[in-house]
Write a protein that binds this DNA or RNA. Structure first.
Length: 318
DNA sequence: AAGACGAAAGTGGTTGA
DNA sequence: TCAACAACTTTCGTCTT
């Protein structure tokens, strides 16, 4: 019930004939990738539109609880109409409906009313931004299959960031993504920046910069990512049996104890440990498959694998 | 033909003057 | 602030199965 199986394969990509041609190559064949919420040109791969999931009832891949929770939250349309026609204007002039001046007492009252009206409006807009941000946060969290507690933590972090005025000059998307990324790290279920980048409109670099700034500003010290934390998810995404995961964990522990972790990217080491475990356990996955899932290149998988194999051969058992 | 391996050049981030 | 540096990626060619 925690993580839905990655193996459940609904057709998440459909090809359609588009009305507009691709600005890059002019092709009319577009792929709708609902899992990644993108429209991609079939011929040149250009991402024509992202976040299509906002436009329809296409939330998917989540359990019924989440679907329920999400049913009416949503895209900016609700937020744009939120204030419309609901808040009345208070006439700024001190005359009554008939045009006569107000009594001093009434005048003072009206002035107080205006003051509170103004305050309500401002806090209303803060609320609206917040509610938009939180639904964006939920969307990304949903696509990354993150558990509730991480979302809660991320929401809280985001609120605090806003309260401290640290979101000024930054987009809400980058801030919510940063809050999520940081929370994931804190909960020991890290997502790679690649994965974050896949479901937001920012790339690895931008997200990296943005989350660093937020962590620094909020005085959060993030311990380095533990390579071990990647193993369960990667093995499960690769559809590997449990024993391979255990093996990979054992290899990792051994290799990291030996100081191989320093300076190297944790995801790369995790990927290589999994690859090694695959070889040893005879549950072969190609380097390519592993690199695709883990977001590190084949070359890095190879290099780390070489390191690990070297070390393991020096040791007695393998 | 596909996968594994490695060399070479390029990129972004960190470090030390 | 800038240059040097290590890690990683990209690209491409060769070897192996």
């Amino acid at each position: 019930m925690l993580d839905s199986k990655p193996g459940s394969e609904e057709p998440s990509v459909t090809e359609t004939e588009a009305r507009e041609e691709c600005p890059e190559c002019g092709s009319l064949r577009h792929l709708h990738d609902y899992r990644r919420a993108e429209v991609v040109c079939s011929d040149c791969g250009l991402v024509i539109e992202d976040r299509i999931a906002d436009q329809g009832p296409d939330w998917r891949g989540l359990d019924s609880d989440e679907r329920l929770a999400r049913e009416h939250t949503g895209p900016p349309t609700t937020y744009t109409i939120h204030d419309k026609g609901l808040s009345a204007m208070i006439d700024p002039r001190d005359y009554d409906a008939g045009g006569s001046p107000l009594k001093p007492q009434t005048k003072a009252q009206m002035s107080r009313l205006r003051k509170w009206d103004r305050r309500a409006r401002i806090s209303g807009s803060v609320e609206r931004n917040l509610s938009w941000a939180l639904s964006e946060l939920d969307r990304v969290a949903g696509q990354l299959q993150l558990p509730r507690n991480v979302r809660e933590a991320a929401s809280l972090l985001y609120r605090k960031t806003v309260e401290n005025g640290l979101t000024r000059g930054r987009s809400m998307e980058s801030s919510t993504a940063s809050a999520l990324y940081i929370s994931c790290r804190q909960f020991g279920i890290p997502r790679t920046l690649e994965e974050m980048a896949d479901v937001t409109k920012y790339n690895k670099k931008e997200l990296g910069k943005s989350y660093r700034v937020m962590a620094r500003d909020m005085g959060i010290h993030l311990p380095p990512v533990n390579a071990m934390d990647y193993v369960p998810r990667f093995t499960s995404l690769l559809g590997l049996p449990g024993r391979v995961g255990t093996k990979a964990g054992a290899i990792l522990r051994e290799v990291i104890d030996e100081g191989m972790g320093s300076g190297r990217g944790p995801a790369g080491i995790a990927a290589a440990a999994i690859y090694t475990a695959c070889v040893l356990e005879d549950a072969k996955r190609t380097q390519k498959e592993i690199s695709e899932i883990t977001g590190v290149t084949e070359v890095t998988v190879r290099n780390r694998y070489k390191d690990i194999a070297e070390y393991l051969n020096l040791d007695v058992d393998g």
